[in-house]
Write a protein that binds this DNA or RNA. Structure first.
Lengths: 235, 235
DNA sequence: TACTATTGTCACAAACTGAGACAATAAGAA
DNA sequence: TTCTTATTGTCTCAGTTTGTGACAATAGTA
């Protein structure tokens, strides 16, 4: 059995973060989910804040550890603080499955936590998800086919999607889920996956062009038998 | 000197909340600011979370103590977690001005805190602000004439206003700053105070009526020499 | 060379918004 | 009573944005 090793760094007690990491592939909006050793428990990637660390930096650090990425579109969206999310059995199961006994100095992890939730938008292609010390996998799941998640993590995901939808037009963030250059159709597919609805091609194109946030590049020849679309990038 | 007495209840360490309590009077958007005994320090009303209390309930409890209100429109908008907001001197000044010495068991209040920020919209007329044990006043200040605030509280206020503006049309929350029944003109004044811009009377009226969120009641006779406006309430 | 699927753009109608016009008041003044 | 004034509710008209379909251009295949 793999032995759990946490860096000796000290963390702020009672405070955690969870991150909903969105990616886009095969027409689906997906998020990264961790599965823990020998437990069948699934959870959002999360972590703790070092004693002298900015909260935002802690999240970026965790994101970098899971994805290898450094420049990440990241947004804080809600802090979950209900007492009902306190369920020490879940964490105990998780620690014990990793060979950690009570009294190993991880007692603090069994306390009540308030969790600050963030969502990140990343380019699926640039990432090879990496599990952490406690988990044996970190994998993409389509948002419509999530496994059962621990605690209130399902709630967190739903609020993340809702916030993302609300921000989509206001902040024009959809492009963060794509490679630097993309076709208008790919961008539309991202929007449709996030909103869960079909959009009109011509209206969508007109709106995006009118927003003046895109730069048009060379055409992209896919080998298909039809007119080649332009490639775009965000300004 | 008034001696500081905090209920013996235990609180979660490192976690606080701050609330930006909005009211509307005399054409101005105002917020409640506390002034602390003998220090000249001004701050947002805030507090701590009891060990078994929901975060949201803690904020409602604090709001009730400051305003006497129970049904309050409340929205969480951001959690401030930079290490730079750790400044024990401010809290030490504040405790000492209240006759509290080091070793009185309030050491935990000098630690680093992460603060979850909320904004509330209340009906100015229903409220008589009440100071807490540490403060000698709790008063309304127009958002454009705030005193200098401790720590990052000025930041918190600005983010609150920004969020309120963004949510104004989407959530139609402006009515929470008014009595149950109000005229269209009063509602427009609230919108103008929040947005900081003048709006067109006819366009505003048409938009609000088209939204189908208002119920029209009897006319309101103000005694002025002109056509009496209808009163409205939110559905 | 003809055929097909997709793209970029245009055209027109429908819906929405900005800006002003105007009659209908409520109360005071003449 | 009648006139005057400030404000309100509603309408109109123009300008803008959005929904919807049409259509030619094009990259490959048959």
């Amino acid at each position: 059995m793999k032995i759990f090793r946490m860096p000796k760094t000290a963390y702020l007690p009672h405070i955690a973060y969870d991150s909903v990491i969105f990616g886009f592939s095969e027409g689906d909006l997906k998020i990264l989910i961790m599965e823990y050793h020998n437990t069948g428990l699934f959870a959002l990637p999360g972590g703790f804040v070092q004693l002298q660390e900015n909260l935002n930096d802690a999240v970026l650090r965790g994101l970098n550890e899971r994805t290898g990425l450094t420049d990440i579109y990241l947004e804080q969206f809600y802090t979950f603080g209900d007492f009902s999310r306190f369920d020490p059995e879940v964490m105990r199961t998780l620690l014990e499955a990793n060979g950690i006994l009570p009294g190993d100095g991880y007692q603090w992890m069994l306390d009540r936590f308030i969790s600050v939730a963030y969502y990140a938008l990343i380019n699926y292609e640039e990432v090879t998800p990496r599990p952490d010390a406690l988990s044996d996998s970190c994998e993409w799941y389509p948002v419509n086919e999530l496994p059962e998640l621990i605690l209130d993590h399902r709630n967190i995901v739903e609020k993340a999607i809702q916030t993302l939808r609300d921000n989509l037009d206001r902040k024009l963030v959809g492009g963060n889920l794509l490679p630097k250059k993309f076709t208008m159709n790919e961008l539309q597919n991202v929007y449709e996956a996030i909103l869960g609805t079909k959009l009109r091609r011509t209206t969508f194109q007109r709106k995006m062009l009118a927003a003046e946030v895109l730069t048009r590049h060379e055409k992209h020849f896919s080998g298909k038998a039809h007119m080649a679309p332009y490639l775009y990038s965000f300004k």
